[in-house]
């Protein structure tokens, strides 16, 4: 697959000496949705800023559609639409004028049909003549998206599009993103909602402390690092594990009422069938069984912890 955005050794040191990016390498493929996941202050917004032109990179190279973002900034930026984290809009301007302005700023001729289609898709058409201050928070976010899409960018950056947004609006936002992907737009979104990354991203990149910890397909990441827990509730509690069940890392919980078994769901043998047989052999009567899969959140916390320990 062709790369839409290529970041190689990108560094950013702010005036105060703070190193927000420490040599980031990242390749974003054409047509994919990549979620950049990281805690607050991880460098997500800085990475977007140096790609989109809001901040100057201190080192490394960044290309968008093959164009260097510093040397060929015009070509590179023409391909990019940016939806910032903060809802920054001029309060007194009409919705349609602010969207037209964005298109003009990017050097595109006025196209009323295109703007109408865009506003309709984002459910903004009825509000087109309203001043922005009259809109709800959710509508304002849609205006930001309309502005970013007004010049038909090939790649769209969404910086925390659902931060502080209610559940319903979040689902709306996901649908908008999915619709854009169907239309062929490459999408990079930052989030600290893991559920969001899991739900809509093709690939997930984890960033922390200005470094990319990993970039992987969402499914394979879940499978590779998918760690499962089996909880077996017994009919009557036991004080110790019966002979024949030792040596598999089993633990007793809830006063000996529950036996906990941790295993790797991607491994060739999970060992569950054997465990159940041995439990019957040992005379244990099972009342209930529950399995739990690690969420991306657990994976993420594990990765960040590992990085911190290594440092």
């Amino acid at each position: 697959m062709t790369a839409m955005v290529e970041v190689s050794g990108a560094r950013k040191v702010y005036d105060g000496g703070f190193e927000a990016l420490k040599g980031v390498d990242l390749e974003i493929r054409k047509g994919e949705i990549l979620a950049l996941l990281g805690p607050n202050g991880a460098g997500k917004t800085t990475l977007i800023s140096v790609i989109c032109g809001l901040a100057m990179p201190s080192g490394g190279t960044i290309r968008v559609g093959g164009h260097d973002v510093v040397a060929d900034f015009r070509e590179a930026r023409s391909l990019i639409g940016l939806v910032p984290q903060e809802v920054s809009l001029e309060p007194f301007e009409k919705v349609i004028n602010t969207v037209r302005f964005s298109r003009g700023l990017f050097g595109k001729r006025r196209d009323d049909a295109l703007i109408e289609d865009l506003l309709r898709r984002l459910s903004l058409w009825d509000k087109r003549d309203e001043p922005i201050r009259a809109l709800s928070g959710g509508m304002k976010r849609r205006v930001l998206i309309a502005k970013a899409l007004s010049h038909e960018p090939a790649v769209l950056f969404l910086d925390e599009p659902t931060a502080g947004v209610d559940v319903e609006l979040r689902r709306d936002m996901w649908e908008i993103v999915e619709d854009l992907r169907r239309r062929g737009t490459t999408i990079i979104l930052t989030t600290h909602y893991i559920e969001e990354a899991e739900a809509i991203a093709d690939r997930i990149g984890v960033i922390n402390g200005g470094e990319i910890l990993l970039v992987e397909e969402t499914d394979s990441l879940m499978a590779r690092m998918g760690h499962k827990t089996l909880r077996v509730e017994l009919d009557s509690p036991v004080d110790t594990l019966p002979p024949g069940l030792e040596g598999r890392g089993l633990t007793l919980e809830e006063g000996g009422r529950v036996i906990v078994y941790e295993y790797d769901s991607a491994a060739e043998r999970s060992g569950i069938a054997r465990l159940m047989a041995d439990m019957t052999q040992a005379g244990l009567v099972v009342r209930d069984i529950e399995t739990r899969k690690d969420s991306l959140e657990d994976i993420f916390v594990g990765l960040v912890k590992k990085q911190e320990t290594a440092a």
């Binding site: 990019i80 920054s88 964005s102 700023l105």
Partner: peptide
């Protein structure tokens, strides 16, 4: 635009 944050658009646009 600096005060309300809309300057982001100028900075990310293909204008010199």
């Amino acid at each position: 635009p600096k005060f309300i944050g809309t300057i982001y658009e100028l900075l990310s646009a293909p204008v010199n």
